[in-house]
């Protein structure tokens, strides 16, 4: 039953999303693409939508996947299936938060300062970083080797170039200027540019239409 599968998958994602937001991307792509629920291209498009709409990122992505998968889950009419799908994913995400936070609230905040819990988190943090880096590698691969106005995936050099520009527009290096005095002017310029993610996404949409549609 796909609805039970949705609930359990998002329960797992909710339980292992530590550090919020982008930390869930590796888990989501692992599960949703692995099970054939959505394609990687659609997931990347959706990360952009979830980032530029209000509301918690995880709930946005969960709603979207619940809705997409639930529509073809066997419940008639499809609109009802979508609603059930959303309820499954969202309640899966909510359950770990509810149980763990209520336990902390009613039992004790000291649970978190337990030595073993602290030691576990010490190693979970770098691991989550590594998982996000892996997710990044997968997205950049899907950007650089992709179908541009053809049915065959080719090397998309503009995707790589625009990625580099986007990265430098949003990158905030916290480098000690006294240590590297020669780099200081560059770092200051980078730190001065403030581009909100939503603006970056809108800008990229415009650049995408202009370049992929009319120049390439």
């Amino acid at each position: 039953m796909v609805y039970l599968d949705l609930f359990l998958s998002f329960l797992k994602i909710g339980l292992f999303t530590i550090g919020g937001g982008y930390a869930m991307i590796p888990l989501i792509s692992d599960t949703a693409i692995g099970k054939g629920w959505i394609t990687e291209d659609l997931l990347i498009d959706f990360i952009a939508i979830a980032e530029s709409t209000p509301g918690p990122f995880a709930v946005n992505v969960g709603t979207f996947i619940g809705l997409t998968v639930g529509a073809n889950g066997g419940i008639n009419p499809p609109a009802l299936g979508q609603a059930v799908g959303i309820i499954c994913t969202v309640s899966g995400l909510l359950l770990p938060s509810l149980v763990i936070m209520l336990a902390i609230f009613f039992l004790s905040k000291k649970m978190l300062s337990n030595r073993h819990v602290q030691n576990a988190f010490r190693m979970i943090r770098p691991t989550v970083t590594a998982l996000i880096v892996a997710a990044f590698l997968s997205v950049i691969y899907a950007t650089v080797v992709t179908k541009v106005n053809s049915d065959e995936a080719t090397f998309n050099w503009f995707g790589l170039l625009w990625f580099a520009i986007c990265f430098f527009l949003t990158f905030k290096p916290k480098v000690n200027n006294d240590k590297f005095p020669k780099l200081a002017p560059t770092m200051n310029v980078l730190n001065k540019i403030k581009l909100h993610p939503i603006l970056l996404i809108i800008l990229s949409a415009g650049v995408g239409i202009l370049f992929y549609g009319f120049i390439l």
Binding site: I44, I47, E51, V133, F136, T143, W162, C166, S204, Y212
Partner: peptide
């Protein structure tokens, strides 16, 4: 076309998230 352009931005946002988290 728009989403193809956005894909590069998503890659940059994810990389930035990883860098921010690693701090």
């Amino acid at each position: 076309w728009a989403f193809l352009g956005i894909r590069s931005a998503v890659a940059a946002l994810i990389l930035n998230a990883a860098i921010k988290l690693s701090k």
